[in-house]
Nucleic acid binder design. Sequence first.
DNA 1: AAAAAAG
Length: 603
Amino acid sequence: MAYVPPHRSRGDYVPRDTGNSSSRGGFSGRGGFSSRGGFNRGSGGGNRAFGGSGFGRGNDSHRGGRGGHGSRFQPGLGSWTDGEHKPAEHNERLELELYGKPGDAQFQSSGINFDNYDEIPVEASGEDVPEPISEFTSPPLDPLLVENIKLARFNKPTPVQKYSVPIVANGRDLMACAQTGSGKTGGFLFPVLSESYKHGPVQNSQAENTFDRRKAHPTALVLAPTRELVSQIYEEARKFAYRSWVRPVVVYGGSEVYAQMEQLKQGCDLLVATPGRLNDLLERGKISLKNIKYLVLDEADRMLDMGFEIQIRNIIQGCDMPPPAERQTLMFSATFPKEIQMMAKDFLHNYIFLSVGRVGSTSENITQRILYVEDDEKKSSLLDILTATEETMSNGLTLIFVETKKMADILSDFLINQDFPATSIHGDRSQYERERALESFRSGRTPILVATAVAARGLDIPNVTHVINYDLPNDIDDYVHRIGRTGRAGNTGVATAFVNRGNKNVVKDLIEILSEANQEVPDFLTVIARENSMGRGRGRGGRNQTRDFRKYGGGGSSGGYGNGYGGRSNYGGGYNNSYGSGGGYNNYGSSAASASSSSSQWW
DNA sequence: AAAAAAG
């Protein structure tokens, strides 16, 4: 466990009467993320009793009593023996830990099913797109997985899941433009686990030499950009891998590497990792990727922004991972800029392209309020808002986004001094502090969280009723992600944003988003947009693309995409045809087209 | 310009 010297431990707000911020001596609590049950935990009732079902019989058993590797009994871990899947017996204690019980935050947060999922437009393209499924049934899913899905109370597949299951079952690759909240995690975990349960570990998984034998040989690898996200994915993986032969392990930076190495030694079939730590462990010779059958890249465009590309390419192309044709690759990305198209070309093999509409912005259960606030008035405006909403949203959580780590510190200190129960999360805090802040927020102990982009995407925190964009992001897709932290699970939410002339680069996109979601567009926004478009035409060519460029042109390697507005105006049509007015999506083409024509009127 | 990620 990462030791945090007291002087580095910044002051989180602690309610006066309890003051038990870390009674468990460390990570997480219930419903939190990270190593609960993962590395670093020692036991939790784990390593006693040898009477487990179907474990270690026969000499053809995966992890079956061969020297060293994970021969220890672990509750809830099945085996692959004599070419058959032998699920472990049920374990009540573990089920309680994994799936929670009524009343737990965890219980209500899992298994959410938005009714409006059915209205999300989806478009699949590519050769021979398999027919989507409509329910979680066996077949096509493996029966054990269906059982686990029921335990986790997922009743109905989301659009991503409907497609990803048959796509992977048919041996195909997937490039999905989908955002958090679209059921992405299940979208890759379900098919990957289901197929793994059917087919078992990779044959020949045994290494030729002793050096190789000491390494972990995962069958599936999931890469994601932030530590919190991989932790969250790992926790989901534990739910759906329950009783199966698949043992999930998570590795990420900022916490003790030796504990993670120990976990790898115990057996690792599904590895969830951030790129930095994975490269570290590859260099140390602790992991071999040559048995990888399934590779998942989550939030791929996020990883671009963060300068991950070299690391990713080293993992995928610079080590011993099988080439695209010999594995199945699933890539998820909110947007589809040229760099991602290149990655898709390099990493995927004859893939199906799936585009899933926005969940956040089109849903009208988020009320978006845009306020004109100059930078030096932001603090006092924030206080006004927090005070005003204190009573009305007394049970909810408020998430405040800022642009810089420094501002996150300043603002949370300021709020704490003003007696607001706040804490902060950003990349300069220690991993322990990050996890504790998030847990404290989740649990409602500090219902105000000031965050940088580290929390913008991917994190699923139930009960966020208010998102405040103290600083507006430069990328409108980030804005959509941020406000998508609220209004989840059919609840209503409020998203407030402070805007001034420093944000003029996004106002045009912001107006589009607001109109798509049937929200009021304040006059000052239109004014700023107009000032902006007079200066220098349209910015960087409008919003990011989420289209299958193989189908809609672009073609060549250089220049790929940008055939101007003419081409883009076709986009809306494609969506309309298959899905009627699913809401919002068909604005894509038309609004881009009208933007270019109306800008000339403004002159 | 800043964010994230290996230490």
